[in-house]
Computed example of a mutant assay.
Amino acid sequence: MTQPSGTGPVPPNPQHPGGAGNPPAYGELYRGDSGSWRLPAAIAAAGIPVGLLWWLLAPGGLNLLSGNPSLASGTNAEGWLPRDLVLAGLFLLAGCVTGFLLNGKRTGAPMPGTVLSAVVGGALGALIAWQSGVLAGQWWGPDEDTAANASIAFSLRAFAVLAIWPAAVAIAVFVANLISLLGKPPEQDS
């Protein structure tokens, strides 16, 4: 395979925002998204408010969701599963919102690299949310004696919950694209 001589016409770039008569700058045809780190960074940064919300809502934290005073302390083992489920629900919500915002109102599916970076951002966001919730529990929660069990402190027992956010991003993008394909009329052959 030989390289093009470079003296021929420049192929048109369908993604080039310039006028139709202006050729794109060198490298613009093949350049990836220059802000490729911004999407996963923004999604990962969303993990901080998700983690704080987990501590506010879950048993063992401020327990605003159930309001049951017997679940407010981490010494009650009946609050450990709901604590993990609150985080799972927040991750599911965050993943669905991320996936549907990623699809947006554009026609067509997002690029596979964009979806992959959003999934990576969701995984990082899940880790950040988990750690920021645990940190909030250490800072603002009551001092608990964890000698009997480490789960007495505000923590996550089911680590598989961390996979929900990135999985929900991928599933939400798939469902949004499937819905957009179902709404399109079939193309006519001419």
Results as ranks from 00 to 15, higher is better:
G74T: 05
G27N: 06
D84A: 06
W37V: 15
A41D: 07
Q131C: 00
A58I: 08
L116F: 11
L81K: 14
G32H: 11
R83M: 11
Y30K: 05
N22L: 13
W80Y: 15
V97W: 11
P24D: 07
A44C: 10
S132P: 09
G21T: 13
G104V: 09
L29Y: 08
F100Y: 13
I43M: 05
P17Q: 03
F91K: 06
A123T: 11
S70G: 02
G51V: 08
T75M: 10
N13G: 05
A44S: 13
G125W: 01
G19W: 12
P23I: 01
R38C: 06
A118C: 09
Q15W: 12
G47P: 05
G47Q: 03
W54F: 06
G32I: 09
W54L: 04
G74I: 02
L116S: 08
G113N: 09
G99P: 09
L116W: 10
P59K: 02
L64Y: 15
S36D: 10
R38Q: 14
E28M: 03
L85A: 14
S70L: 11
Y30N: 08
P9M: 00
G18A: 04
D84W: 07
G95S: 05
S132F: 05
L87A: 07
G19R: 15
L93H: 02
W130T: 09
G95R: 01
V86S: 08
G60F: 02
S34P: 15
G21K: 06
R106P: 12
D33Q: 14
L71N: 10
A58T: 11
L90R: 02
A109N: 13
G60C: 04
L71D: 12
T98N: 08
S70M: 12
C96N: 08
P14C: 03
F100K: 06
P12N: 00
Q15H: 14
A42F: 09
L101W: 11
F91V: 10
A88I: 09
T114E: 14
C96D: 05
L81A: 13
L135S: 11
L124H: 09
V115W: 03
N63I: 01
L87H: 06
G113C: 00
A72H: 11
W54C: 07
L71I: 13
S36E: 10
G108P: 14
G35K: 02
R106Q: 15
P40L: 02
A20P: 15
G99F: 04
G35N: 07
L52V: 15
W130A: 10
E78L: 06
S66E: 10
P14W: 01
A88V: 12
G79R: 04
L53K: 06
V115Q: 07
G133A: 05
P112T: 01
N68Q: 09
T75N: 13
G113A: 12
L64I: 10
A109I: 05
